[in-house]
Protein backbone atom coordinates (compact mmCIF):
# COMPACT_ATOMS: atom_id res chain seq x y z
CA UNK A 1 0.00 0.00 0.00
CA UNK A 2 1.18 3.51 -0.70
CA UNK A 3 1.45 6.14 2.00
CA UNK A 4 -1.48 7.99 0.46
CA UNK A 5 -3.65 4.87 0.52
CA UNK A 6 -2.78 4.29 4.16
CA UNK A 7 -3.51 7.93 5.00
CA UNK A 8 -6.87 7.60 3.28
CA UNK A 9 -7.64 4.38 5.13
CA UNK A 10 -6.83 5.97 8.49
CA UNK A 11 -9.01 8.98 7.67
CA UNK A 12 -11.84 6.77 6.56
CA UNK A 13 -11.63 4.62 9.69
CA UNK A 14 -11.61 7.66 11.96
CA UNK A 15 -14.48 9.20 10.01
CA UNK A 16 -16.58 6.11 10.67
CA UNK A 17 -16.04 6.32 14.42
CA UNK A 18 -15.95 10.09 14.97
CA UNK A 19 -17.79 11.52 11.97
CA UNK A 20 -17.59 15.10 13.19
CA UNK A 21 -13.79 15.04 13.67
CA UNK A 22 -11.83 17.40 11.44
CA UNK A 23 -8.57 15.59 10.80
CA UNK A 24 -6.89 18.70 9.41
CA UNK A 25 -7.07 20.31 12.85
CA UNK A 26 -5.86 17.28 14.83
CA UNK A 27 -2.35 17.44 16.19
CA UNK A 28 -0.75 14.20 14.89
CA UNK A 29 1.02 13.82 18.23
CA UNK A 30 -2.02 14.27 20.46
CA UNK A 31 -3.49 11.13 21.99
CA UNK A 32 -6.32 9.95 19.75
CA UNK A 33 -8.58 9.21 22.70
CA UNK A 34 -8.38 12.86 23.73
CA UNK A 35 -8.33 14.37 20.24
CA UNK A 36 -11.35 12.36 19.06
CA UNK A 37 -13.05 11.90 22.43
CA UNK A 38 -13.28 8.14 21.91
CA UNK A 39 -13.48 5.42 24.53
CA UNK A 40 -12.05 1.91 24.60
CA UNK A 41 -14.99 0.49 22.64
CA UNK A 42 -14.62 3.15 19.94
CA UNK A 43 -10.91 2.43 19.80
CA UNK A 44 -11.51 -1.26 19.08
CA UNK A 45 -14.07 -0.29 16.43
CA UNK A 46 -11.50 2.04 14.87
CA UNK A 47 -8.97 -0.79 14.68
CA UNK A 48 -11.62 -3.04 13.17
CA UNK A 49 -12.35 -0.51 10.44
CA UNK A 50 -8.66 -0.17 9.78
CA UNK A 51 -8.26 -3.93 9.58
CA UNK A 52 -11.02 -4.13 6.98
CA UNK A 53 -9.38 -1.41 4.91
CA UNK A 54 -5.72 -2.37 5.22
CA UNK A 55 -5.64 -5.97 6.44
CA UNK A 56 -3.49 -4.94 9.39
CA UNK A 57 -4.52 -6.59 12.68
CA UNK A 58 -3.28 -4.93 15.83
CA UNK A 59 -2.70 -7.32 18.75
CA UNK A 60 -3.82 -6.03 22.13
CA UNK A 61 -0.23 -5.88 23.30
CA UNK A 62 0.43 -3.16 20.69
CA UNK A 63 -2.44 -0.86 21.70
CA UNK A 64 -0.08 1.34 23.69
CA UNK A 65 2.13 1.88 20.64
CA UNK A 66 -0.61 3.53 18.59
CA UNK A 67 -1.91 6.25 20.86
CA UNK A 68 -1.54 9.12 18.38
CA UNK A 69 -2.50 9.69 14.76
CA UNK A 70 1.18 9.67 13.73
CA UNK A 71 1.88 6.44 15.63
CA UNK A 72 -1.19 4.81 14.14
CA UNK A 73 -0.23 5.73 10.59
CA UNK A 74 3.36 4.64 11.11
CA UNK A 75 2.22 1.35 12.61
CA UNK A 76 -0.03 0.56 9.67
CA UNK A 77 2.72 1.53 7.21
CA UNK A 78 5.11 -0.86 8.92
CA UNK A 79 2.66 -3.76 8.95
CA UNK A 80 0.70 -3.31 5.70
CA UNK A 81 1.62 -5.68 2.90
Amino acid sequence: MTTTQIDDAVRHAIGAIAPEADLSTIDPDERLRDALDIDSLDFVRLLEQLQNLTGVTVPESDYAKIATLRELTTYVEAHAG
Binding site: S40, L41, V44, L47, E48, Q51, T57, V58, P59, E60, S61
Partner: peptide
Amino acid sequence: LHQTNVDRPLSSRLVHA
Protein backbone atom coordinates in the same frame (compact mmCIF):
# COMPACT_ATOMS: atom_id res chain seq x y z
CA LEU B 1 -8.31 -10.44 29.72
CA HIS B 2 -4.98 -10.30 27.85
CA GLN B 3 -4.80 -14.07 27.76
CA THR B 4 -8.35 -14.32 26.45
CA ASN B 5 -7.86 -11.64 23.81
CA VAL B 6 -4.54 -12.81 22.46
CA ASP B 7 -6.01 -15.33 20.03
CA ARG B 8 -9.16 -13.44 19.26
CA PRO B 9 -9.90 -11.32 16.22
CA LEU B 10 -10.55 -7.66 16.93
CA SER B 11 -14.28 -8.08 16.54
CA SER B 12 -14.58 -10.45 19.50
CA ARG B 13 -12.05 -8.98 21.92
CA LEU B 14 -13.29 -8.06 25.35
CA VAL B 15 -12.61 -4.80 27.18
CA HIS B 16 -12.20 -4.15 30.91
CA ALA B 17 -15.58 -2.45 31.03
